[in-house]
């Protein structure tokens, strides 16, 4: 049965958002490779980055497949979507493009995202779009490990030394501003919810809140009470940081178009 073109436009946007979150966070985390505090953490961060880049290929591959229904010359490949779009065409959440900061900030960002990602993938496994459901089923198993690890480290650093506690609290306070966007539904989210493809973000928020509150309590950390919300990433309005990420990530394809190895 053919779906209306408007639905497919929304699904394309939705797949881009899911893929771009994985791509940008995967790139950010990969920046740690060779720089982590201890070898085990270096390997763990590289593994998490690798999972996220693998998931990027699946989501952006789906986006390109959908785009092929109307784009002359066919949909773009996952690589083209990753390497040949400029910042304004990226649809990732502002949270994932924030700089790594110290190890605590990287882990705080990861935990805030993992808790959302895990809930999203849990819900997406029941998606009316079979392709999205299959990707979610695969990714959920990987992200469960990501969440277990980032939760554990937030607790250990939060409930650790005075220094690690204060750094973890500062990281949370700095990043909290960007978490509201995770649950702000716009017309794309509404279209996906109506089509049975995406979840209700209010349900995701309830799961996220429970995870965050439980973990922060265990970590002796205080949930920031700021109600300010910075938004824009989902429609392509980004912080200045994204441009620097892309400058590095896309350099080779920009300098040597079509280069392969």
């Amino acid at each position: 049965m053919a779906r209306a073109a408007t639905d497919d436009t929304a699904l394309f946007e939705y797949a881009l958002r899911l893929g771009d979150n994985c791509l940008i966070l995967g790139h950010r985390v990969s920046e740690w490779c060779g720089h982590s505090p201890v070898l085990e953490e270096d390997i763990a961060l590289a593994n998490v980055a690798l999972d996220l880049i693998g998931q990027t290929q699946l989501w952006l591959g789906l986006a390109g497949e959908i785009e092929g229904q109307w784009r002359e010359g066919g949909g773009r490949s996952a690589d083209d979507l990753a390497f040949l779009r400029d910042a304004g065409a990226f649809r990732n959440l502002l949270l994932v493009e924030q700089p790594n900061g110290d190890f605590g900030k990287t882990l705080a960002r990861q935990f805030l995202f993992d808790a959302w990602h895990n809930a999203m993938l849990g819900a997406l496994q029941g998606s009316a779009d079979k392709r999205a459901a299959e990707i979610a089923e695969k990714a959920a198993k990987e992200v469960a490990y990501h969440l277990n690890r980032s939760r554990d480290l937030v607790v250990r650093l939060g409930d650790g030394t005075a220094e690690s506690h204060s750094r973890m609290q500062r990281a949370l306070d700095d990043l909290w501003f960007y978490t509201g966007e995770l649950f702000l539904a716009d017309e794309v989210d509404a279209a996906m919810l109506a089509a049975g493809i995406g979840p209700d973000l209010d349900d995701i928020r309830a799961q996220w809140d429970a995870e965050i509150d439980r973990t922060l309590k265990q970590a002796t950390l205080r949930r920031p009470d700021s109600g300010h919300v910075q938004k824009g990433g989902k429609r392509g309005v980004h912080s200045e940081h994204l441009g620097y990420v892309l400058a590095e990530m896309q350099f080779l394809q920009r300098a040597y178009p079509g280069a392969r190895w």
Binding site: E40, E41, I43, A44, A46, N47, D51, Y145, R149
Partner: peptide, 13 residues
């Protein structure tokens, strides 16, 4: 367990 992430994605240390 030392780390749930080991020398390859499928292994833990």
């Amino acid at each position: 367990v030392v780390s749930q992430f080991g020398s390859t994605p499928c292994k833990a240390a």
